[in-house]
Design a protein around this nucleic acid. Sequence first.
DNA 1: CCTACCGATCGGTAGG
DNA 2: CCTACCGATCGGTAGG
Lengths: 191, 191
Amino acid sequence: MTNTRDDVVNAAGRLFAERGYHGTSMRDLGRELGLYGSSLYSHVDSKEGLLVEVVERGAQLFDQAATTALESSDDPVEQLRQLIAGHVGVVLGHRSVARTFLNEARALDAAHRTRVIDARDRYEAAFRGVIREGVEAGVFSAPAGVGVAAIFVLSILNALERWYAPSGPLGQEALVEAIHAFAVRGLRAKH
Amino acid sequence: MTNTRDDVVNAAGRLFAERGYHGTSMRDLGRELGLYGSSLYSHVDSKEGLLVEVVERGAQLFDQAATTALESSDDPVEQLRQLIAGHVGVVLGHRSVARTFLNEARALDAAHRTRVIDARDRYEAAFRGVIREGVEAGVFSAPAGVGVAAIFVLSILNALERWYAPSGPLGQEALVEAIHAFAVRGLRAKH
DNA sequence: CCTACCGATCGGTAGG
DNA sequence: CCTACCGATCGGTAGG
């Protein structure tokens, strides 16, 4: 019945993801945990600190997923599959954190927002690198540029939190396969 | 120097797009127009009414674009190009409205939110229909289902507001061509 | 469109 | 973790 600090951070992630940072009050958050808004301050320093913590956790999860994916293989097609699988894993395993990371960074002060933007750019760079290797190996083609191709794939991945229903007809593995097939075809060099 | 009602709605769209509905106060909006927050109420009835107006305008723009696109041709590949071109046109021509429509619907009351969700579903249905026709004509393939394929294409389109820079190296026509090429390849039936 | 103001709610603190 | 409270800000109104 007693709440831990982690309970507070997790509940904050849920509410920030659902209603947005500015749409969530500390009293809302307290209610979610069965206590008063003012009581939250024995667990955390400030509302903005909670947002920073959730967002940094999101950056961490995506960063780890990308690193693991790149280490899994030397083949660009397979690395892309692992990048996609990793992203899907983060979204399905930590949806609120992912949503807050993707959508609420604008509520951060300039310094923390810069950190998030840098983290996203490093993550994107993993996709760019794999696509570039594929192009150099002659298996991919990116007529509009590697950067644009990476954004297209990431657009599909970042949109998942908006529509994917875990209880729906499309399972996690089928989802990964569908995205990978679509991306690899979209990137496929003529042959 | 005097502001019209349209000036107020447009400025509201800009601020809602940049900071979110809950991140924008009526005093912020007044400041943007060079007047006091309370003065806005001689132009509009309420803050939520402003959001409704911006979001409904977004629904209208996307709906019109889809209708025009479908009428432009009978060929699914060409219809898809026109759907993409129409979406890009809305985002580049009315970016704030598009952003607010895409991101701020959750701040609406249940009745208006339902209207937005219905509008989005009708818009998605245009993409589903074109892809379905392409599959039936044997030119497209959608192994994970027509609905999933439509979502993939729309994910790329809906993400545009997050990254596309009109002043960047990729012009509007090249952007449409790049998305269409990626989508058509992603959907292309083996042959 | 401004001045003056309202009740409600905000993030946060003090003291227990 | 609660009680009692703070100053600031919120959406909105009355009257001009």
